[in-house]
Design a protein around this nucleic acid. Sequence first.
DNA 1: GCATTGTATGTACCC
DNA 2: ACGGGTACATACAATGCG
Length: 770
Amino acid sequence: MDKEIKFWLLDLNWGTLDRQRCMFLWGIDDRGRRVLLLDEQFEPSLYLVLAGDVQLEPIAGQLKRLATEHELGADISVEEKRQLGRRVQAVRVRYSDNSKAERFAADALRLKGVKSVHELDLRPSTLYLLDTQATPCRWHRVKVSETDGSAGYAVPSTYLVRGEFRPEGDLSPPPLRLLAFHAIYKPSKGSPDPKKDPVAVLSVKTEGSARSFVLDGSDDSGILNGFVTLVRREDPDVVVGFRSNSRDWLHLVSRADALDLGLNVSRAMTKPHPSVHGHFSITGRLAIDLADLADDMPELETKTLEALAEYLGSAPKEGFIPLEEVTMSRYWETEQGIGDLRRASEQRAQAAYDVCSEALDYLLELSSLTKLPADHVLAAPVGFRVDSYLMLKAKRSGEVVPPREERPYYTYAGGLVMAPIPGMHELVAVVDFRSMYPNIMISFNVSPETMVRTSRPSEEVNISPEGGYRFFKEPRGFFPSALIELIEERQRIEAQLKSARSGPEKRVLMAREKAVKVISNAVYGYTGWLGARWYSKGVAESTTAWGRSLITKASNLAEELGLKVVYGDTDSLFISYDADNVRKLLTDIGQELKFEARVDKVYERVIFTEAKKRYAGITSDGAVDIVGLEAVRSDWSEVARRTQREVLNDLLSGRGLEAARADLDKMIDDIRSGRVPLQDFVIWKVMSRPLSKYKVRAPHVEAARVLEEKGWTIKPGDRVGYLVVRATRNKPHVMPYQLASAEDIDVEYYVNEQVLPACTRVIEAAKIKG
DNA sequence: GCATTGTATGTACCC
DNA sequence: ACGGGTACATACAATGCG
């Protein structure tokens, strides 16, 4: 019996049912039941774009025969499509076996008249989302029939899809069941190794419960079994961890495999498996790694769960129990220590749970906007999110999706950075262009298919200020259209936000607005990315050329008004403030350049050295911004950073040079008298490659080598902390901080090469009156 | 043989 | 595995110096 259900799409995968390939759609109905829809109607398809002069009938016949030869079935059709805006004839070929389709396409390309193959590089689940109205994290109505084919799946009901997905308007997601976990492995040096290090503590937090499993002896099979049982019982929609993709799943799955347990926690009773973008998938659930979220947040200084939780106000009131390598081995020695470990782990499971609840709306909106499944969208690099969004737009207008291609690397000029006027400046306005690159692409219709190399009457084209690229003014191009849609979506959201009543509704709207902004800001960078399906060096190059031209013109307009331009970078100008004239400048920019600029902030005082991209300023509310200087660089010692911060506060708040010098001198005295703790001297650097790939003996590399010798595992992405120590015979100048003690520290190095240069630079600059 | 100089390497930052 | 522009420390090789 057919019936219609309301369905919210959580996850999907291309699977096998009764030896038939079939789309599995996991979700929730409007009564809150977890359901599985099976769509047997769907077949992936590829497109062959034909040459313009080819005779349709013969080539279609040839392709039909070829398809039969390759056992694809003869289901092919000729369709009118678009390729970069131009009308083309294309042959659509449906298939169920990807490798047969690949062999067919290779042969088809040898036929005269077949120009290119499209969409064969898209996975079936991607094609499904692009070809149907089904959207992840959205409600739909869909006609289904009951089936008993649900044996072996952990859902109460399974249906066969009988019709098309029809989108429903309501934005709010159903209540999702979250399960957060945190694991600690038996103490080891450096990154944990699944072969040696059993799971020591595993904490799980769900809405109603918190549980921990602690290692008893050396066998962690009890922990793993307990975890599997718990996940199945709680049946979460979202399973969330921190560094779970790069660490925990790998570790937990291989531990379970080694013990022949099988970590079968998915709704298809399978174990977590590696998927695209280094992500681990749990069929029927969303596996979320909050580290992906943290890595995307430049405002987080350290990409840790603790920092993320602090930032979002989800940290425990009493503070986190520390869990560094050094403290870990100590904990393990006593009964009380093990209790601490357990509580530390529970704190983190709780924090992950809270952070995920906080971030969930954003994640779901980003997923529905780009149509990347919610568990992939955070793991996917920004370029792939844009790619996915653009594929969606392309498909809507009948475009075939271009293949991802190998291309030569090519650099081009980027934003303009002006040399600052060094010194201390009073009252400086920061004027910036709003969404400069997106607006350039819209205003000048910058897009791969609007770009022309042929000579055209100049009134029909926009010509880039450098490089001589020409873009048709009409019709509107692919990128500009996509960007305008994003802007319109943002305006709709803002209008809705004005009338939104409830908290949840507001939250969802704000999350969507953020998602829209993230995608529009990423479009320019995408166009210059070699991996982009719609890569276009002309587009990227022209966009920045217009940017340089705009900022230069705006700077000239400012000077014409008698304003002093102190500094500028890409889309911003620092201008000696004069309220009337700055207002006038904004008007002039609007009228003469046809672009919108605004005053972002006004600094009461701002200090520039001779260096670009480095300054510090104070606003009237007393807030101090430090940009680019040592104080905000994670690869300087804390002692140097803190001292520079104090000195800058003195200089900017008007306490003057004397106060700054006094603070500096005091700190130097403290250092020499041993009043500064060891950890403030540690210099941290991230390993960018395996140890063997380094060409020079850089300090952090030397330190890492020592660690490795002592049994640590050092991998790319690991942070290595080292100290500069007094050189003695047979001893290197640097030491991993774990192996050094306070007496070893070369205090004169820290005075002369860290604290003094960082502080002297800004003090000297502040002496100059701007 | 050693100090000076120039260039390469490596990291982290800004927009 | 989105872009280019930039500073800065350190290593290392080349250069110069009777």
